[in-house]
Design a protein around this nucleic acid. Structure first.
Lengths: 208, 208
DNA sequence: CGCACGGTTGAGAAGGCTCAAGGCGCGTGG
DNA sequence: CCACGCGCCTTGAGCCTTCTCAACCGTGCG
């Protein structure tokens, strides 16, 4: 998930958050926007009973939340650790009002997000666990760079993958084992290497 | 789902489509934008084997697709029938470049959509069929107007509801029967009346 | 009047979840 | 330097929700 590349002032307040620290909480007033300088964060919504759905991930350069809003629409939590510059919401609004490009840039970024969301709706609503995981692996592989065989970000735990795909860690684990047995991927520690992107892509489109 | 309220020129080409006619197809070049004048449309994505996920619905005043893009990110199909004015994509772009408010309006609308999408991810990824249907009924009820006991739009078939919620028509039908038995709703023909919004809301938040 | 279509209901299957046990790697402290 | 403990991952057994397949019903339309 990639967010607005706005001309954010770099003189904002810099803050760091350590692993698992929640620095943005769903439904609280959105007084600050956070520009990620380094590290990564999970973005998620959760239900009162603890069920959690990961909306996306934020990396260097992303801005949270990606768009103007009165209350944060989701929570954000540091992955291994994250450094952000905090920008007061009024500054963001002022940027939008004055800089002609800023608004267009935000719109551009919002559209990109929307397109991704649409695909994820289809995934969560209609695809099997096997298809979802294959799609996720392909997506991660291509995100990391041009070379498709790159490993999936080792900062992601099984629980993260599960929360992103709307599954349980057990199901993810079992499916990874299956994929491994089928020689589609290899595993070393947390990192997952894609061995056969073509067959993985075939899984996404056709139900087994 | 509500879309951009742009100052669309009204002199565009007017077209009508009849029930079930698909007037916008996913992944084809986006040469036109469609401004809905009357009637309604389903917006959906589908998998090669026919599984379909409804992304949202479009009504009078909505613009499809809601944002600039090179190819349509989803398909659109008339519900009972729909009247639209077709606006060539370049005109939309020109609007964004010249009218300062247009871009901001689109951004505003895109953000609104994004917030809704986030909630739907949580719904599709983590909520049970019972919770989804309750959430849907509440959402529809409030959409129709101030009065919460308004019926759900009778233009929606069981299949539409199922495709929107990521369920099957059978499951929707069974759950509606259950809700009816529990005196949460009443049914007459296709229309669904909400009898007990409070208990429905309670279902959404707490799992059974 | 009969047919087609959408909705309802039932029986059975299955995919994914829950609960539970066990393994592995890593950090910590003796 | 090694032993221990903790967190994460894996694997198994059984269950539950939801899907699939199928029959039946009502309604509207030709």
């Amino acid at each position: 998930m990639s967010f607005a590349q706005l001309p954010i002032p770099t003189d904002g307040l810099k803050r760091s958050f350590s692993e698992r620290q929640e620095f943005m909480t769903e439904n609280t007033p959105a007084s600050m926007h956070f520009h990620v300088v380094s590290g990564g964060a999970r973005l998620f919504k959760s239900l009162p009973d603890g069920r959690r759905q990961i909306i996306g991930f934020a990396h260097r350069g992303d801005v949270l939340p990606a768009y103007p809003c009165a209350r944060y629409p989701y929570s954000a939590e540091a992955m291994r650790g994250v450094q952000v510059t905090c920008v007061p919401t009024p500054v963001i609004h002022h940027l939008h009002d004055t800089s002609p490009g800023a608004c267009a840039a935000s719109l551009q970024s919002a559209c990109h997000l929307l397109v991704g969301m649409h695909s994820r709706l289809l995934m969560l609503g209609r695809q099997t666990a096997r298809e979802r995981l294959a799609a996720f692996l392909i997506g991660q592989g291509t995100r990391m760079g041009t070379h498709e065989l790159w490993p999936v970000d080792p900062a992601l735990s099984r629980a993260d993958i599960a929360d992103f795909l709307g599954l349980t860690t057990e199901t993810v684990s079992r499916l990874l084992s299956t994929f491994h047995r089928e020689k589609l991927i290899s595993r070393e520690r947390r990192a997952i290497h894609i061995l056969d992107p073509d067959r993985l892509r075939a899984i996404v489109a056709t139900p087994e």
